[in-house]
């Protein structure tokens, strides 16, 4: 076989291979990256319904937005801003490893699906919508605060998140407050798809290897659904108490140290001079 032929065959293989996998991967990619927040014709979840999005927005804008949502919002784009406002300040998280090509494939995939009117919601089959049981709510609370460990040994939510109605010091402040997460993510379905494959970089890196089980997700949904009427949450008071407690604890520790080391020496010379000065010149 001559060199040119060989090169020809090889390049054919290379050209054909990505083309064949592309459609396949776009479907997969959609499932993994988009379906937890979006539907196509299934109504909005945490994010808008994507049906007919290609009619509403320009293709290049869509691709740009998918590649780096933060940048588009940051650039002062009015369409993006309006969307952020609509979704209570939530911005679509940047997807790890998203490229221009992948985004284009996704846009194509969504357009095909919406034109086909395959009305099927993209996420997993709709879960049975039983009313939440008190048991589930309690289990969800225990999992949230970490009284019960997660099955796959992931970190308890409390470590990073706060939610209204927790006892004592409340939860962490690293992640967003989850008091109104149920509404924000569009109810049961949104919450479920979100929890089964958390899309934000931090959450996904933490829970990819330690996924939540179906039972745990049910418990969490129950817990969040049963939350008391959602209002704007004020945790300022609690964090003030936290600081005060910290100060008190520090003071207490210093007091204990002082008692433990009360026999420590504090220098002599200055004291001698001081004592002489107090006595006065004789």
């Amino acid at each position: 076989m001559s060199m040119t032929k060989r090169i020809g065959v090889l390049s054919l293989v290379f050209l054909w291979f990505p083309a064949a996998t592309r459609a396949q991967s776009a479907a997969d990619d959609y499932k993994k990256s988009c379906a937890m927040c979006h539907t196509i014709g299934g109504g909005p979840l945490a994010g808008p319904d994507l049906a007919g999005m290609s009619d509403r927005r320009e293709r290049s804008w869509l691709i740009r937005f998918i590649v780096d949502p933060q940048a588009v919002v940051g650039s002062g784009d009015t369409t993006a801003k309006a969307m952020v406002d609509e979704y209570k300040g939530m911005i679509m998280p940047a997807l790890p490893g998203m490229t221009h090509e992948r985004a284009a494939a996704l846009v194509d995939y969504v357009r095909e699906r919406s034109s086909g009117k395959s009305d099927q919601p993209a996420s997993s089959p709709k879960r049975e919508m039983n009313p939440v049981t008190a048991e589930d709510v309690e289990r969800g609370r225990e999992l949230f605060v970490g009284v019960q460990p997660l099955e796959a040994h992931g970190a308890a939510c409390l470590a990073c998140h706060d939610t209204k109605g927790l006892e004592s010091m409340g939860g962490g402040r690293l992640g967003p407050n989850l008091t109104s997460v149920y509404e924000r993510l569009g109810g049961r379905q949104g919450l479920e798809s979100w929890l089964s494959a958390p899309p934000t970089p931090l959450m996904s890196s933490l829970y990819r290897t330690r996924p939540l089980s179906a039972r745990e997700i049910t418990a969490f949904i129950a817990f969040f659904e049963a939350r008391p009427p959602r209002e704007a949450v004020s945790t300022g008071m609690r964090h003030g108490a936290f600081s005060m407690l910290g100060l008190l604890g520090t003071g207490l520790l210093l007091g204990v140290f002082h008692l433990l080391w009360r026999g420590r020496r504090r220098g002599v010379r200055a004291k001698l001079v001081q004592a002489y000065r107090l006595r006065g010149v004789q």
Binding site: L260, W261, R264, R265, R266, G267, V268, R269
Partner: peptide, 15 residues
């Protein structure tokens, strides 16, 4: 063990 990071009988610079 208790004084590992602070020796309470050390002369100070003023001494």
């Amino acid at each position: 063990v208790f004084n590992i990071f602070h020796n309470p009988h050390m002369p100070s610079m003023d001494d």
